[in-house]
Structure formats: C-alpha cells, structure tokens
C-alpha cells in the first residue's frame, strides 16, 4: 500500500494512495462540511459543500471525489470557500420549507447545525415556499418533501447496502423529488423491505419515524459501519 504525504490547512498529513482528500482530512481532525457524503456509501459530489482549494489549480475541487496526491497543498477553509458554503446552505434553506421550530429533526439536523456553524442568522434569498406533499402511507415511516435537500443518501443506502433500490429521483432541477418505486406511495412500494436504513441516514427531517413529534427524531447510523466492514472483511463467510 502506497502512502502519500500532503498538506491540508498547513498541517502535514498522510493517507493511502487513492483515498479522497475529504477522508484523509477527517482522519486528521479537519472536518470539511458536507451534506451528501456519508461514510460507507459511494460519493456523488452533489452538495458542493466539501469543495477545497488546491494549490496550482484554478478550479475548486469536491474533496469527497478528489484523490490525494503526493505533495498536494490543500486549503479547506478560506474566505472564498466560506462564502460559497454559506451561499449554498442559504440556497437550500430558501429552496423548500425548512422550518426548524416545528420540524421532527429540530436539534439533530445536519442542515440546521451546519447553518449554525457557518453563522447563518438570516437568508438573503426569497423563500420559494413550494407546496410539497408529505407521504405517511408507510406503516412505520414518513417522508416530508418539504424538508428534503435531495442529497440522495436514501437512494444510495437503499441501493448499495439494502440492495432494494426502492428510492430514486424523479423530475429535474428544482422540481426533483425523491420517489419510491415508480412514484407509488411509499406504503404501496413492492420493493421496500421496511428496513429503515434510509430514515437513519437522512440528514434532515425529510425521512422520519412515524409518530415522532417536534424535535423528537434522533438517528442511529452505527449499522453502516458494521455492515460495510463485515462485507469487506467477509466476516459472515466460513
């Protein structure tokens, strides 16, 4: 295994060749913001929050998808990046109806804590206030499109870990929506195994346990690590 040495935020760090900047940074305590990435699932580079500056490159790079290189000099927290991140989160907050005070995930929401960490105390954009449905047709879970940021973690965990691929995205642009199967109500989905993995990985209050009230939703993501590790190490074979 080859090891590369590089500099992230003036700190000399090492990582395995082929690892993403994002992973190496986090291993060394440099927590680059993200909303679409979650350890154990493939990366899609959709949220653009983990973008970093790399010395010698004019363009910003999504650190979750950019492998480290020997001698690389990376900056993860410059004024330019902070400004971009703030704007991206503000865009999300204005895009749908993210009303923390009456959200099941209040107090345990990645969007909320990121907004706080970035110092967002108001949104400079006009709120779009789209009219979006809530799907509570499933016996145990609910999907509130008003809180969805289209990170597609649910789509990936269902496909890659559970193997059901119940979720996908329909529509395009601002009209994109997460759908189960071919757009049936979740409760009528034939592929859904009701495993609840999608609910556990959701960063906001979009997917929730039915019956949870305001600020009651809490998530447990421990399963991702042991399933992914067990598969890699073939711990169940023999």
């Amino acid at each position: 295994m080859n090891v590369n040495t590089l500099q992230i935020d003036r700190k000399m760090v090492t990582g395995r060749e082929g690892d993403a900047i994002f992973a190496v940074a986090w291993e060394h305590g440099i927590h680059i913001p993200r909303l679409c990435h979650i350890g154990g699932l493939s990366d899609v580079g959709a949220c653009r929050l983990c973008m970093v500056e790399i010395e010698g490159q004019k363009r910003l790079q999504a650190s979750c998808l950019t492998p480290i290189q020997e001698g690389m000099v990376v900056r993860t927290d410059t004024p330019r990046l902070r400004q971009h991140r703030k704007l991206i989160v503000e865009l999300l907050l204005a895009e749908r109806n993210h009303i923390c005070s009456v959200c099941v995930a209040d107090g345990a929401c990645e969007l909320q804590s990121l907004a706080a960490a970035l110092g967002i105390d108001h949104v400079r954009f006009r709120y779009r206030f789209p009219t979006l449905p809530v799907d509570t047709s499933h016996e145990r879970f609910g999907l509130d499109h008003n809180r969805c940021i289209l990170c597609t973690r649910c789509v990936r965990v269902c496909d890659e870990i559970e193997g059901a691929h119940t979720w996908d995205v329909c529509g395009r642009g601002a009209n994109s929506l997460i759908i189960s199967d071919l757009g049936e109500p979740w409760g009528e989905s034939e592929s859904c195994t009701s495993c609840g993995k999608c609910v556990q990985v959701c960063p906001t209050g979009a997917l929730f346990d039915k019956g949870k009230t305001i600020a009651e939703m809490r998530r447990d993501r421990g399963f991702l690590k042991y399933i992914v590790t067990a598969r890699k190490e073939k711990q169940w074979i023999g």
Partner: peptide, 21 residues
Amino acid sequence: CMDESCGKCIPCRAGTVQMHD
C-alpha cells in the same frame, strides 16, 4: 438553464432559480 438543470448539485439547481428570480 433553470429548466435544463438536472437538479443534482445545489448551486445549479437552487442558484439558477434564485438568479432567474
């Protein structure tokens, strides 16, 4: 561009909407 945006990344999906507005 707003109509043609695929919606995958946030800057394009939500940014074109706000710029258009």
